[in-house]
Design a protein around this nucleic acid. Structure first.
Lengths: 225, 225
DNA sequence: TTTAAAATATGATATTTGTCATGTTTTATT
DNA sequence: AATAAAACATGACAAATATCATATTTTAAA
């Protein structure tokens, strides 16, 4: 099993602020896991007893609404941590995590992380910064949900995925989502998401290769109102 | 001027985790301010050089959408801190803060707070917990915005204000908001908010005394779909 | 490879919400 | 108290979105 202190993934998250000693300690008690596409990593309401460090793959974090629809709140990719929030607030998770493709993660037990949060103020300040950033992003999402139309939100989602997670060699978005996933990100009916994507296609803004989406006219997408 | 170490307000926020010495140091450099109703505390995009501890009154935090509408993201009341986020992320504020009634606040300079965040891990862990909670709340708001109707969101807003901020002696909600404010919380047009409130009144769910709203049928409001 | 199931697509229609117009009431100001 | 301005209210209509029905295509499984 790999050693945390030598792992390059930690560069991308707050674990980089831990000392070599701390990393070595964590390395000893962490476990590696492979998670298959579609598999549930944790359920809404489940008590997490640790954090996941994503070494490869992507997952979605969603919350079930009272109307039975799933709202995707965030996507977590390679390099990021998963489950800090519930760990810190010491409450059960308010979100469900599902793998969008095959993933490799390391699981670090709660007690180890809490220990470091309480003793290493550089580390906890780093986590704090990440959370502050997440909160800012959440504000933006709230405003978008409240004030923008479905086609704007969908256009922005495509742009976000493009800018944040990049493209495959053929120019398609590196993350493959179903139409239902898009609907659940944007907060609309699946049919509505499909309709809007079809319209984008007709307008030459995007094209599709199988289920993969390619952005053909980024400035055009940005102009959508 | 009052002394932080003797101030009871701090019981309600993470400042309670500071030591007496730290509080005495902060006490020396803090300044008290009175803010009139309607006054802007800080603007969107403004760099904050400190945190506000709200001793009395209420303010709204909002963000201007591209369509020109203001979205209210959060309300901050007596006992809470204002501006931690921007301070921690060291970025300009993404929100505007406006007083909803006359306020009394203490302003604590950035350097002092940062010093304690970096040295007192109990304090920073406490702030971390608060942020984790805020993030959880933000998730809920996102889901509500995306999946619920205006009348549901408005009903829930009334219930939230009732449960969180309480009532006046006459049974009306202790926080007085304009119809436009309600619209900006719910993310709808002012006319729509007015219409829904009128309907609630017709249905006997609420009544109004002047501009004040009184909840007459809480279970009924909770049943709104 | 065939078949069943799931995902995608599109039409028709109903519901929700926004916008514009206009009137009334309340509040603030002189 | 008179006046202006702001807030509240409501109607009429348009736009956005949801829902239901029904194809078609793609994917998975036997």
């Amino acid at each position: 099993m790999g050693k945390c202190e030598q792992c390059i993934i930690k560069q991308f998250n707050s674990l980089k602020s831990l000392t070599t000693d701390e990393l070595m300690r964590i390395s000893k008690c962490k476990t590696s896991k492979t998670i298959k596409k579609g598999e549930v990593i944790f359920e809404e309401g489940e008590m997490l007893n640790g954090v996941y460090c994503v070494k490869d793959g992507i997952c979605k974090l969603s919350k079930l609404s009272e109307n039975g629809k799933d709202q995707i709140v965030k996507m977590v990719v390679k390099g990021q941590l998963l489950g800090q929030r519930s760990l810190i607030s010491d409450e059960s998770s308010n979100l469900q995590a599902v793998a969008l493709n095959d993933m490799e993660v390391c699981f670090i037990p709660k007690s180890e992380i809490i220990k470091d949060l309480q003793n290493n103020s550089k580390f906890s300040f780093d986590v704090l910064k990440e959370m502050a950033h997440d909160l800012k992003e959440a504000d933006d999402v709230i405003v978008n949900m409240a004030q923008k139309h479905v086609r704007q939100r969908l256009a922005e989602t495509l742009i976000y995925i493009h800018d944040t997670f990049g493209m495959n060699p053929d120019g398609t978005l590196s993350i493959l989502l179903s139409r239902e996933d898009y609907a659940n990100i944007v907060g609309t009916a699946t049919e509505s998401a499909i309709r809007v994507l079809s319209q984008f296609k007709k307008d030459g803004l995007i094209s599709t290769i199988g289920k993969h989406i390619k952005i053909d006219d980024l400035p055009g997408l940005k102009r959508i109102e």
